[in-house]
Nucleic acid binder design. Sequence first.
DNA 1: ATAGTCCAATACTTCCTGTCTATGGCAAAT
DNA 2: ATTTGCCATAGACAGGAAGTATTGGACTAT
Lengths: 317, 317
Amino acid sequence: MSEQVEFRHLKYIVAVAEAGNFTRAAERLFLSQPSLSKQIKDIETEIGVQLFERHRDGVYPTPIGQMVVDYAVATLYGRTHVFKLAKEIFSGTIPPLRVGFSCFVNSRHLQTFRSLYAKHFPLCSVQLSGGDTVHILQRMERGDLDCAVLCLPIAGPKWVVEHIASTPLVACMRTDDPLSERTEVGLQELVPRLTVFRDPDGHPAAHARLLEMLAAANSSVHVSCTAATPHDIQLLVRDGYGIALVNEDMPLESDMAIRHLYGVQWTADTAFVYSSDSGHPALPHIQRHFYKRNTETVRKQPQADRPQLSLKFDITA
Amino acid sequence: MSEQVEFRHLKYIVAVAEAGNFTRAAERLFLSQPSLSKQIKDIETEIGVQLFERHRDGVYPTPIGQMVVDYAVATLYGRTHVFKLAKEIFSGTIPPLRVGFSCFVNSRHLQTFRSLYAKHFPLCSVQLSGGDTVHILQRMERGDLDCAVLCLPIAGPKWVVEHIASTPLVACMRTDDPLSERTEVGLQELVPRLTVFRDPDGHPAAHARLLEMLAAANSSVHVSCTAATPHDIQLLVRDGYGIALVNEDMPLESDMAIRHLYGVQWTADTAFVYSSDSGHPALPHIQRHFYKRNTETVRKQPQADRPQLSLKFDITA
DNA sequence: ATAGTCCAATACTTCCTGTCTATGGCAAAT
DNA sequence: ATTTGCCATAGACAGGAAGTATTGGACTAT
């Protein structure tokens, strides 16, 4: 039924809608008016729907016609951009992708991203640079970075956020800590000693969300030590300043142990982020791949009986 | 550059990728093999990118080719569905849209939805039915409803959720309540008298989220009265059972007053929801319109200094 | 009234191009 | 060495998109 509709027709439909007049639309298309009229009419009879109302004072899309016009604009845009991107990738004229990352993101996610990119864009190089989340976001806003792998939550409509992974939050303590003899530790016995945190300034939204999750569990903590890197956090824990909540997959240094939490199921989340008005042509394609990977694997929702809280969402959004 | 690429080519590209072989792809397309070969080759030279690697044991898409194949599949799918939808709307063969709604959703959102639908699909009718959120979701899952206008949070990957509106949460009390003399009420003086709530069974996730927001403000409440409708909530408040948290735009009955909260900025959110595997062809188009309306108006993020918490997200997701 | 203007639709011709058949080339299998 | 399977090339042909010329309808100005 729609098999006969070609890109040519979409171009004609858009032109007529914009010009509001067959004659001027034909001029703009460097086409004769009869040819344009016929093509539009052919399509209308082909799909069995009137797309335009011809009045003496102009040609207006019908409501359905307007829907088709919207579709046509999007589709024409998609075509030019896919093939533009393909050519840029093929010729290597695509600029190097500048990727930021938070040091709290496990390096395997960076490797996943990197191999995904290398697989799809073998001629294209990647420039990595680490930093705290706020700084990375600032640099993306300035246009100094194209995208980033960061810890959620990331707020606001200006970012495109594609979830990559969830990791349980666990307690990080010394191996000689009495609590390390348990296989799991309860929140109530943990909270009084929970004093080591990620630097709130590095990612205020994540800090606020963590405090909110603690509040939801009727726990209030005393934030006495903060650190800007996983290494520093373990330094503080090793030196006896307290216990920290860390990602289960954080690279563990010597004399450090992690224990799961009992009674709650808290997770931290990693995401691929880029500016919604970013110009780099590879980003939507990469995002689409992460999206596919998500929709294929997310099926198995565990639905545990323990309260599942996640750092995923920014509660101030 | 990509101007020469037609839907025909996209079909050919997909067929070759699926058949892994020019000859068999041509058979499947009821086309001669040379014609197919030539068309693919023409496109490759036209856009300047090799899409397929011809090996002795088969034809494989290059990485860029795979990207184009993905694009082609999506674009072909889009074309058939847009015109199928257009025809169904035009001929009135589109079935009536069965819309569910929660009674806590302000009726103006239903009217917005209704006028949007009527504007785009004038020949198509709407069947409205109200109920509590859980019930509406169940009916959508069973296929008895096509879509719904509900209060967030709505969890899970099986729902497509498009945000419609945010409304401040306010305290609902009797007009003769001492607190009603203030222009704003503080959470600390409010919480001890906050005893009237929406029925938790009607929307467990929203109830849990509200309790979490209260916990985040170091407040724990005693849920002594619950009601299933805004009317019943006001009934309980009028009869002196306590104060309720309600949407600012809830239709107010006589002797009832609402007061904003001081120190926090809490909001409840309304969304357009439908099943991600729903077959009704109008839904993606409606969603697209809400999405457009959002992206056009959301620019002005207030960024107040008060803590902004929202019922928007399901924290157990 | 009537001529003039504007615009879409129709009739017919031209020419481009997508498809076909036939064939060549190449590598692996027998 | 021959056969087989597959893709590329060459030349002929037909379908249809676009062009030119024209008609027809509706409004306007004199």
